[in-house]
Design a protein around this nucleic acid. Structure first.
Lengths: 235, 235
DNA sequence: TTCTAATTTAAGGTTGGCGTAAGGTCGCCT
DNA sequence: AGGCGACCTTACGCCAACCTTAAATTAGAA
């Protein structure tokens, strides 16, 4: 289960032979969301509609050269780009001018090199460091920052403990839905969670003291008798 | 007057023929501060004494392989590195593991490609535009300059050591968020970080002695029991 | 080499989150 | 209405996680 292989890849190349060849390499490597275009116009349309994760651009295209295409793409997207260029041809422009390309490969190239550079770019661009984070969300009268493990309410800050954090995260991931006590115990104590029902109640109480205006009349973290708990979804 | 051509370049290559060839290319291109070494030991010595701006490393060396050499260099310098590798040989390691190499070239290569990639790296690493400088930031009662590795507090200067710097950088990059002990260990000691928990605590203590008014009552670098540490975000 | 500073190891001390338990309250069902 | 089971509420003691210090080790510089 490699997340990299789930990335959407766009190939822009006018020579059908090379295009099909690249598609073949990628499929053999395990990539399966492959788009291809033979001209800039089609390429741009695909970029807008399907939002690929990376583009492989040939420098020479019939209607617009690869640099112009990149400039157009950069109007609305910062997606990583890998250029294909003929030996010597535009190397100066490719490397000299910082066009925003992430790498380039000189034709003819070995499949292996293309794949490796592609994977390198994808890793760099989508490493967990730069990936999406948990949002700070509103919950009734308070704001919750799960990454900072802090609840803000009425000009006060309430830090969350480890268990509170685990439980609130599970509830947040399932906000608006009922989460069974079992599921919550599992989130906080792991698979061998048995006999923690009472403990869970205590933790729920502690969370309520932080997020609710009146912990005895819960508005956000509600009990669903016989089923579990649920976090009221907001926006 | 191109500042790039003033950069100091180190070539590490055991085969004299190739080494001399590369030197020739570089001189022809206008580079003139060229160091070369045939083995890792010499290379390390040059790195320490002359502090080149970039290193071109062959993967295969007589006394130590290029990866090990890079690891050694990374102990004291973040200089950019370009690898030379035989076709297919170590490509996976080169690109797969983020070893901290900036690029690589497969042998045999054209002089033109080496020069262009070299220039690209130098521009990326040293151009004022792309040199994303680390800001000097306020942290509670003190100011922290990560580039200068110095903390200023109460008319005093506290220099940061290497580990302190690595940890504080990681924390700063994730300010406001909890950073797990694991993540911190990884930032300071690399992927094979196991058994550094205690050491981490000692370093945290040291950092606190520099940035906190009262290290025993941390305001900036807080412990989140069971989860990790976090740096309080200020603006 | 020798000296210095940085880093790691080790050992004892501290504490706050956690789990337990006991009594209370509420809602549902007959 | 009354009983029962599900859930709430509070308080307290424990102990793992964390702190603190000092001494040992390592790495770098001269």
């Amino acid at each position: 289960m490699d997340a990299i292989k789930n990335r959407k890849i766009l190939i822009v190349e006018d020579e059908p032979e090379i295009r099909v060849m690249i598609e073949g390499f990628l499929r053999k490597e395990g990539f399966y969301r492959i788009y291809s275009a033979a001209d800039s116009e089609t390429a741009l349309a695909i970029c807008r509609s399907d939002k690929p994760d990376i583009a492989i651009l040939d420098v020479m295209l019939p209607d617009m050269d690869g640099f112009a295409l990149l400039t157009s793409i950069r109007q609305f997207s910062g997606m990583p780009v890998l250029f294909l260029s003929a030996r010597g041809e535009d190397e100066d422009r490719l490397l000299g001018l910082g066009l925003g390309a992430d790498d380039y490969i000189v034709k003819p190239f070995l499949p292996r090199e293309l794949i490796l550079r592609l994977i390198a770019i994808l890793k760099r661009a989508y490493s967990p460091a730069s990936s999406e984070r948990l949002p700070v969300f509103n919950l009734g009268v308070c704001r919750v920052d799960l990454e900072g493990a802090t609840v803000y309410r009425a000009d006060e800050e309430y830090p969350l403990t480890a268990k509170e954090h685990a439980l609130l995260l599970k509830l947040y991931e399932n906000r608006g839905r009922i989460v069974t006590s079992d599921a919550l115990c599992q989130a906080a104590w792991g698979d061998d969670s048995y006999g923690y029902e009472n403990t869970l109640m205590v933790h729920v109480r502690r969370i309520r003291e932080k997020i609710e205006a009146d912990p005895s009349k819960p508005q956000c973290l509600q009990t669903v008798r016989g089923l579990g708990y649920k976090l009221i979804a907001k926006e």
